[in-house]
Design a binder for these strands. Structure first.
Lengths: 162, 162
DNA sequence: CTCAAATAGTTGAGCTGGAAACAATCGTAG
DNA sequence: CTACGATTGTTTCCAGCTCAACTATTTGAG
């Protein structure tokens, strides 16, 4: 099934073979496949959706477990408008709180609460497990590292030259 | 800025370093960055959005320039429900038409029309150009190939073991 | 000091895609 | 031949996101 989908998407053996487009399709499909898998695993474990995990995990790793809205939005690669509402939901769920900056009253922080850490610990093994299936199955650790390096280069190129 | 975002997302040098999560974040961010770049390039050229290009390009490479809805949905990695409406929009724009199968009256095909080919030719150079910037900048062709291989393996692992 | 421009975040409208229920058709066991 | 289950596509409803407009604050030029 999936093999066939790839074949359709890039029409193996066609005259106009474009390695860039090939790679791009591969990124899109790998991303979609893994995202889908993670989503499914979370919902079937009766846990919140993936974006919640991303927020919690990102904040957890930040100094003082909090981040300016703008920084968080950039880390998650969504717009600030989208983030405001996403954070609103997590706050409503009691996982985060909004704190403010003394020296610049424009900025507000999304700050992790204990309940958020708790939920994060609950979600982490599920995500870790799914990622392990997706990655370790066919990739060595070195390959994963190399993969990451190349992808970051791509991202750099895509962001840099506006 | 972007470097910083990466640093935030994976908190360089943290105690709990998870190569899988690193790689996963890299995929997500690379995908988002390139998608954003493509979107921007298309809209600033007053062209339709990226999904339209994906539909047209996929159909263009298919035999007889048409595909069953289900096949197309799988190639684009979206649900069939979503595809129905996406195709509706392209039909309304006169780029596609819906054709039917003689032998199995359940299936309907999305079929490329000349106007669709024409638009595709207009969009292709824009997409090609952006992808070239994102990929060739820092990657050799061999690396791009290798990248694709690894990503397809990941996708296989993610799809396979349900 | 003052005011225009820049920056941070929020809000509202609109669009897109997903999940689930539905309709139509096919295939197959009996 | 019939009926039930599987498959294909559509439709309905809804959640989440983006875009653009807006508010509040800060910064910098004059």
């Amino acid at each position: 099934m999936s093999e066939q989908a790839t074949a359709i998407a890039r029409n193996n053996g066609a005259a106009d073979f474009d390695p860039h487009r090939e790679a791009w399709i591969a990124i899109t499909q790998a991303h979609a496949a893994v995202t889908g898998r993670l989503q499914e695993a979370l919902t079937s474990a009766e846990l919140p959706p993936l974006p919640w995990f991303e927020v919690l995990a990102t904040l957890d790793r930040a100094p003082e477990q909090r981040l300016k809205m703008g920084e968080l939005a950039e880390a998650l690669v969504i717009t600030r408008g989208g983030l405001t509402k996403l954070v609103d939901r997590l706050i409503k769920a009691g996982l985060l709180e909004r704190t403010f900056c003394e020296t610049d009253r424009r900025v507000s922080y999304a700050t992790l609460l204990p309940a958020g850490v708790e939920l994060l610990e609950e979600m982490r093994p599920v995500v870790r497990g799914e990622l392990a299936v997706a990655f370790s199955a066919n990739l060595t650790v070195e390959q994963a590292e190399e993969l990451r390096t190349m992808l970051e280069r791509i991202r750099g190129a895509a962001c840099g030259t506006s």
